Simulated assay, not measured.
Amino acid sequence: MRKNKTETERTIQRLIEIARNHFTTNGYANVSLEEIVNEADLTRGALYHHFKNKKGLFLAVFEAVQKEVGEYVEEAAAKSNDSWQQLINGCQAFLEGAVQTHNQRILLVDGPAVLGWETFRKMDEKYSMNSLKEQLQLMQEQNLLKPVSADAMTHCLSGAMNELVLWIADYPDQKDKIKEAMMVLQHMLEGLRENK
């Protein structure tokens, strides 16, 4: 029984990895499930057993990318013990992670178009906004941020960063644009800092 479960998990992961490469390279509309199952050496029936359809497979890929970016943000934030620096590090890591070539098309182009705004937002909340809100609440408890709505701050910063990612993705020299974006974000965050 355990062997079958392990094999099933491996098959699912392999399908997600192969599909991610195809979705990244060709875009959702141009990907054929036949290509994916051929590369995975499986049947279409096996794919449909794990994922209802192409959109279901894309959702699994999208969620894997969101999770990966979320982990990248957490790792960057953890490089400092200072709560303020953790927030800055996390914001910068989000911008960097979302615009990476292997994430851009899935997160920024096909994600909202294929999944719809409601599903896109749920995934964003699960993998990005919840961590951001926890950090902001912690900083309020430490009297580092003004006592304003943590929900409003979270949505404001998340929305700003999502829009910045779209802006940054349009430029070949993304490092410079990330620096510009971080300068603006830091000025915005300074407005929320509690003056002691």
Rank of each mutant, 00 (worst) to 15 (best):
A46K: 15
A160C: 00
G56L: 04
R105W: 14
Q140N: 09
L95S: 05
L144R: 03
K146S: 09
A152L: 05
E63T: 11
E118S: 12
W117P: 00
E68F: 05
L157Q: 12
D173C: 11
G111C: 03
A150Y: 14
G111T: 04
A76P: 09
K122Y: 02
Q135N: 07
M161G: 06
Y72I: 02
M139Y: 14
I88H: 13
A98D: 03
R105L: 14
M183I: 10
N53P: 00
A169H: 06
V184W: 06
D124L: 13
P147W: 07
Y48H: 11
A77W: 04
D176W: 04
W117Q: 01
V184H: 12
D124Y: 08
A98G: 04
A76Y: 10
S128D: 04
E74H: 04
K126N: 07
M139W: 15
G90Y: 09
M182H: 05
V73H: 10
K175E: 05
S149Y: 02
Q174I: 09
E75A: 12
A113T: 11
V65R: 14
Y127I: 09
V69L: 15
W84I: 12
T154Y: 10
V184S: 13
A46P: 07
I88R: 15
S128Q: 08
A160W: 03
V65W: 14
A78G: 03
V109C: 01
L87Y: 08
W167A: 00
V65I: 15
L185R: 10
N162H: 03
L107W: 13
Q104R: 07
